[in-house]
């Protein structure tokens, strides 16, 4: 079980958090302009890589804030945590 350093509350046990899937998938501003394929790309397609992954997490049983996490899925090492809205520090 991870220890997650919530950017608002500090280090907490993983049981206080909820994982929210891949990060940096922005909801299209004009969905109606998209064809089926483009919309499906936003709606369904997610990476599931072994290695460094950008993820969204929510401190559900704490401050309820969402934030971003850079996690190595192969060993669960959390590389970086940064606030929602901040640009991904690594491309």
């Amino acid at each position: 079980m991870f220890i997650i350093n919530c950017p608002f509350c500090g280090e907490r046990d993983q049981s206080e958090f909820k994982a929210g899937g891949e990060a940096h998938i922005e909801r299209p501003k004009q969905p109606t302009e998209l064809n089926d394929e483009e919309w499906a790309e936003y709606l369904f397609m997610r990476k599931n890589i072994k290695g460094i992954q950008f993820e969204r997490w929510n401190h559900a049983h704490g401050c309820r804030k969402w934030f971003n996490m850079l996690r190595d899925t192969s060993n669960d090492e959390i590389k970086l945590i940064y606030k929602m809205g901040e640009k991904s520090p690594i491309e």
Binding site: K65, M84, G85
Partner: peptide
């Protein structure tokens, strides 16, 4: 909350 914090802050 998710939409407010992430898509429409």
């Amino acid at each position: 909350e998710d939409y407010l914090q992430t898509e429409w802050p």
